[in-house]
Design a protein around this nucleic acid. Sequence first.
DNA 1: AGGATACGGAGGTTATACCTCCACTTACGG
DNA 2: CCGTAAGTGGAGGTATAACCTCCGTATCCT
Lengths: 222, 222
Amino acid sequence: MSSARVIRPLRADAARNREKILRAAATVFAQRGLDASLDDVAAAADVGVATVYRRFADKESLVMALFESAIDEIAALAVAARGFENSWDGLVWFLEEVLQRQCSDRGLRDVVVGTPYDRDWVSAAKERLGVAVGALLDRAQRDGYLRRDVVVADIAVVEMMISSLGGAAAEVAPDLWRRYLALILDGLAAPGSGSLPAVPADEVVFAALRTPTGARHRPAGT
Amino acid sequence: MSSARVIRPLRADAARNREKILRAAATVFAQRGLDASLDDVAAAADVGVATVYRRFADKESLVMALFESAIDEIAALAVAARGFENSWDGLVWFLEEVLQRQCSDRGLRDVVVGTPYDRDWVSAAKERLGVAVGALLDRAQRDGYLRRDVVVADIAVVEMMISSLGGAAAEVAPDLWRRYLALILDGLAAPGSGSLPAVPADEVVFAALRTPTGARHRPAGT
DNA sequence: AGGATACGGAGGTTATACCTCCACTTACGG
DNA sequence: CCGTAAGTGGAGGTATAACCTCCGTATCCT
């Protein structure tokens, strides 16, 4: 019963195939999002489906292997943004970096937004992200660059709106999202024509935003 | 072969059921969008599926019967908005009215955005809409309320972004979208910190925005 | 009352996705 | 160079879901 199912190194061809699968999954998920089937990934990798399932227990394992680092990287961006001399520039830089990633990779967006593979490893990174973004906002507000009635949740919503647009248009107009980010940034920078109406999104709202329509059918997993 | 399949009035119960179906479809499509199945509509109407199909040839006929007037109404709003004393107020009023409708009715949004029942009767209304919105923008720009680098397509994109958000959050936070509309309006009103980057969306881009992910599977119709 | 009209819901058809089985092939240590 | 453990492909099992139809039964209307 020892957990000593130690690392038996993969056979050469198996290791090669594992890489092929990961590379194929990266491009397939980037283009079509996590809805893409593993059959498609297998085809793109020029490999049988069984090979995919032998290497990755199920779809989620593959997704996790692909995006674990990317998601940590995003959390790190928010921290890095604090290093900017000018707090507004830091915020803008952060948004551009994050959105650049999410708009060119529908799979990443799906993971970040949380549908449907919402798990601990994502939540943990999101926690850190929230704190770091909060710090960015505070500083930009203290410095007078950012309107006072904006909160962290608003940034998350803006990210969702823009990455949704950017992801959909990625193949025909990869830079379209920048136009609308610029527009929203001008809105964020404005002193504001009065304070923003309605309350920002809370956890309940985000849960709803993750679930396109009522209680959507889960993807057969579990 | 004569087209004289004239109006044989429906039997009393049939007419009653037709109304029940339309009412049920209105609420079901409003809540869950056009993805909702006709089986669901039938259940909500407390009627068998066959009854639905006897009254409406197929799903699109039902959708059309439901939304034909709503979509004309939207085009009319843009015209009505020109009647405002203040051109900015007219634009804001128009956006709020349109989004109010689209955010509280996912079905309407689906029809307007165009997935997947894009047809002549919609295009015609969209044509008129585009012209009227263009006039709104021109006036607001001449009056100095609206930044100069905004075009009609930008308004369409903004509507899509916000109605997407609003529709998703409708059940838990029906007014959330107003917050982000306000933010964007401030961005639209701002003189602009430089001109907007990237080119606005064109027809090709909108076509892509209508098609969630590559060539999505059509809904079995046709 | 009786014929035309309408009804319900089971089920045919099609489509898609996840994942497994198993006969065959390949790598590689001795 | 050969035997065997490791690996492979892809057909197909299982599940889900949506659209729409068939047909025995019920309801309306004259």
